[in-house]
Design a binder for these strands. Sequence first.
DNA 1: AAGGACGTTTCAATAAGTGAAAACTACGGT
DNA 2: ACCGTAGTTTTCACTTATTGAAACGTCCTT
Lengths: 229, 229
Amino acid sequence: MAESSTRTVERALVLLGAVCDAGSLTLADAAREAELSASTALRLLRTLEGTGFVRRDALGAYRPGLRVVQLGAQALGHESLVSLAEPALDRLVEQTGESAYLSVPSHDGEGVYLAMREGTHSVRHASWVGRSIPLGGTAVGAVLTGGPPADGFVVVRDGVETDVTAIAAPVSPGGRAVAALSVVVPSYRITAAEARRFGMLVAHEAASLLTPPAPDACAVVLDPQGEPA
Amino acid sequence: MAESSTRTVERALVLLGAVCDAGSLTLADAAREAELSASTALRLLRTLEGTGFVRRDALGAYRPGLRVVQLGAQALGHESLVSLAEPALDRLVEQTGESAYLSVPSHDGEGVYLAMREGTHSVRHASWVGRSIPLGGTAVGAVLTGGPPADGFVVVRDGVETDVTAIAAPVSPGGRAVAALSVVVPSYRITAAEARRFGMLVAHEAASLLTPPAPDACAVVLDPQGEPA
DNA sequence: AAGGACGTTTCAATAAGTGAAAACTACGGT
DNA sequence: ACCGTAGTTTTCACTTATTGAAACGTCCTT
């Protein structure tokens, strides 16, 4: 088994990823990014264009197409994890006043934010949903990759971004972490004691995320990404 | 030129679309859906799986992967049209109490909801963002495909869904409709007079969507989907 | 005017994808 | 317990569909 994959499709997907990452890419840039010859990139991008996955703007540059938005939104809707987590995020914001996040490990050794709630303190900023997060040196990464933390949560002060403290707890049905709940606080605003308090809140929400409802929750535990259907 | 497209990639994308539409598909179903032989579908789905675009759940069924969510969210973030429209949607909800939508024509002769705001009346329901909307027999379709409506807006009572009235206005810089703003109201709740009032509100928001800001708006007009960069 | 970068098209070589069939598993009915 | 049906996966010979170099036209920059 193992190495079955169709080169063409892989290349097209790399191209698609590049365009989405950049927001806007010229053909030559896209080709370089994906390490393809211009002609191949052109052909592939044309296919992506024909199916609505990318579009060309007035200047001829490639941009993410509607299909991407559409599928992404649909997928988000189907992902029961985020709907399950939303109440928890709301409660965390309410209790801490800080922004709260749901993230899951991605396929490429990073993490992805699946949902967030703005804290009451922070200024409104562009959505982090869909953003990648490194797993090294972050609180989220620690709970996602490492075993269950001693206290049930992890605090990382001045991790990736300096001046912010992240407090994360794993959602780990059956011991394996499948997601992380976290709150992020400007470091100056939080004391060690408060960090512990927040940590317990986060840990509690994370722990109860997949347990409180009916026995059906077992199904959810076994398949945390899907709808119990 | 014209018909250049790579069959493999197209097929893979159809497969991806099918999985996302269904939320969960077994291999056999996916193959049927895409009209592919099981072996081909398997190979392509494996490729999609390897790149994170789909994933298999505990039961072996295929589901949309994180990559889809990630790219979709990124794309939505890059779409300046939605950020431009958000204040307008907010105002429409505020003024009408009903749900307000932003939609654009899709590549396949339908429309797609890009953004929405819940009305104050309605119960909370799953997001419509990413949903397709037929262009025939809908208010949105009328303003998206037809010329500019006489009054600046279109009212369709009991269109696709019975019992709901849709009121839409085109965002048409330079005469060509590139998007539609709309509000949707339960028919029983709205009188003809009020529909006209709402229509004028929607038309006004739609008309001023791309005009009020600085002269830079011209750039936006030429490239309504992208960020002015 | 020359030089360079980009987008696009063409075309022959062949690498790459295809689907039928077989192997294997898992159910469900009788 | 048995057989039949449906799903998943692997294998393999066929050949089609993908590939990239090269060439062309265009538009900037120097």
